[in-house]
Amino acid sequence: MSAREVRSIGQAGWGRTLGAAAVSILYFFPVLFIILAAFKTRQDILTWPVKFVFTPTLDNFVSVFFRVSVEGGAAEATGFGRYFFNSMFIGGSSVLLALVIGTAAAYGFSRFPLRGNDTYLFMILTTRMMPPIIAIIPIFVLFRIFGLSGTYQGIIALYTAFNLPFSIWMVKSFFDDLDRDIEDAARMDGSGEWRVFRRVCLPQIYAGLAATFVFAVILTWNEFVFALLLTGTETRTVPVQIVRTIGGAMGVDWGLLSALETLFIIPVVLVTFALQNQLLRGVTFGTIRR
């Protein structure tokens, strides 16, 4: 059976659509509330009952990136452009590294099992399942000693290791699903091992690799604890800055915060839609495929 989409057990009509629509919109309401608030003026946010029809404004989005400290003064950048760049750059590069190392390892674990293969895989999964706080205590000390805190190298190395267990388990699950007969046929025809890997196995899991990449980028994009402790002003990522924004002493600008959250989550919501078919595998680290 294909894993193309979230499968179903039978047909239902538009009646079910209506019911499901009501439930889905109610379920999505907290997100919707934030997105609407992001387009509202200060007055509109505070009115009750909640306004669903209002004149939208982009002021909140502008103030995410620019702050006017004195009335009539020049706009000053808030640094959020930088934080968004950091989130993308750190996420993208660490996931790419993890995917290259992880794909090699996944192929090894899948096709050339070592003695104690399952034990290795178990330990790899455990490094992922354990609370990040545990690993972070010694890493924090190490980063201080080697002067890595607040640097890109430090946080990228850390996120590479953070994404590695996920990449290995995910990619291995795709390799395990392949039909071995095709590889054997290629070997019979005289293909070397490198050619079997590069020309036979890898092309079959391109979609899987893409899904793994996107999943891992989301996980890194969302990560908070490591970033909170190990990034500096230069390398700070978006989640850290969002939480700092509510931590501010002088009252919270909820419009600004909503705009910030909206910018932060919209990419994730869209990507979730694209990934729907691989979601089950992704959220269980490749342990459950169907």
Binding site: E5, V6, S8, I9, G10, Q11, A12, G13, W14, R16, T17, G19, A20, A21, V23, S24, I25, Y27, F28, P30, V31, I218, W221, N222, E223, F224, P239, I242, V243, E261, F264, I265, V268, V269, V271, T272, F273, Q276, L279, V283
Partner: peptide
């Protein structure tokens, strides 16, 4: 609720599935 196929199921699923992909801190 979502076990059967119905019109627009894919899109409504997106609304329900989105929360788990969001950032915990968000």
């Amino acid at each position: 609720l979502f076990a059967r196929e119905f019109p627009l199921r894919r899109y409504l699923l997106m609304l329900v599935l989105a929360p788990m992909m969001l950032s915990l801190s968000a």
